[in-house]
Amino acid sequence: MNDVTLKIPQATSKRLPLYYRFLQNFANAGKKRVSSSELSDAMKIDAATIRRDFSHFGALGRKGYGYDVQYLVDFFRQTLDQDEETDVALIGVGSLGNAFLKYNFHKNHNTRIVLAFDPKASDDGKEMSGIPVFHPELLEEKIKKFGIELVILTVPSRIAQEVTDDLVKIGVKGILNFTPVRLSVPDSVRVHTIDLSVELQTLIYFIKNDVKDSQM
């Protein structure tokens, strides 16, 4: 993201890619303008939250008119640096990692996995889903060669911190962590953790409480 996103709340920043995706859908459907209420219905986000998020960027719309769809698509594309592709490395090619390799990120946005690492790979590397996979011994060499600053981490929990320490030393700036480990990193490195088991438990909790509320 460019500098403007650094001045807005983190919760708003996390919603920006969602706004961009849904606005693209509206644009692809030929819609010229959209209201916060229409966005709210499509995204299941409160309209007041949408207006508040947009207000951080100045006057993006006009009262009584709504928002110009193509203008917002262009605005969020620039804000999210969608015109510049970001190369990503995948660390760990187990079941989840293999699924990531098979998913073509670049068809939907500007992120693409260009290399991966797995202990089962030989020193010469191998190819999976069209992506080269190397042994972790080549981590530093390949990360620097490809100029990688962002990685997806899907390794076993017992080695997650060790691998993270190596990535920090190499100069990686961002880690999308799919392990349940709360990684320790310096302030110069940003980590986003997605614990699938926690997300599932949270979903189950809300479903059960929705049922209880409906029975009251």
Rank of each mutant, 00 (worst) to 15 (best):
K7W: 11
P156M: 12
I175R: 04
N28W: 09
K7M: 15
Y20I: 00
M1D: 05
V172E: 02
P132D: 04
A89I: 05
L60E: 04
R51N: 15
K169T: 07
D166Y: 00
N98C: 08
K126L: 09
I207M: 14
D83W: 00
K145H: 05
R158N: 14
K44P: 01
F206N: 05
P156Q: 09
V4N: 12
T12P: 02
K120S: 09
S214P: 00
N110Q: 15
F22S: 02
S35K: 09
L72R: 02
L200P: 03
D87I: 03
L115E: 00
A11P: 02
Y19I: 07
Y205I: 03
L80Q: 10
A160L: 12
S188H: 14
E162A: 15
Q10H: 11
G58V: 12
Q78H: 11
G97W: 02
S188Q: 14
G94N: 05
D124R: 05
A89H: 03
E84F: 08
G58L: 13
Q70C: 00
N108I: 06
E149K: 14
N209G: 00
T12Q: 02
G174A: 11
L96S: 05
L60H: 09
N2S: 13
R112S: 14
G66F: 11
F75E: 00
D213K: 11
L176V: 12
T49Q: 07
K169F: 02
L101C: 08
G94K: 06
I170F: 11
V172P: 01
A160D: 00
I131G: 01
P156G: 08
G130C: 08
N110D: 11
L90E: 03
Q201D: 08
S40I: 10
D74H: 10
T86S: 10
S214Y: 11
L6W: 03
V4L: 15
S37A: 13
F146E: 14
Q82S: 10
S13Q: 15
D41A: 14
Q82I: 03
D74I: 05
Q215F: 10
V191M: 06
P180L: 05
D46Q: 08
P132A: 06
L176I: 14
L39S: 02
M43V: 06
T49G: 01
Q201H: 13
R190M: 07
H109P: 01
P132V: 08
V191W: 02
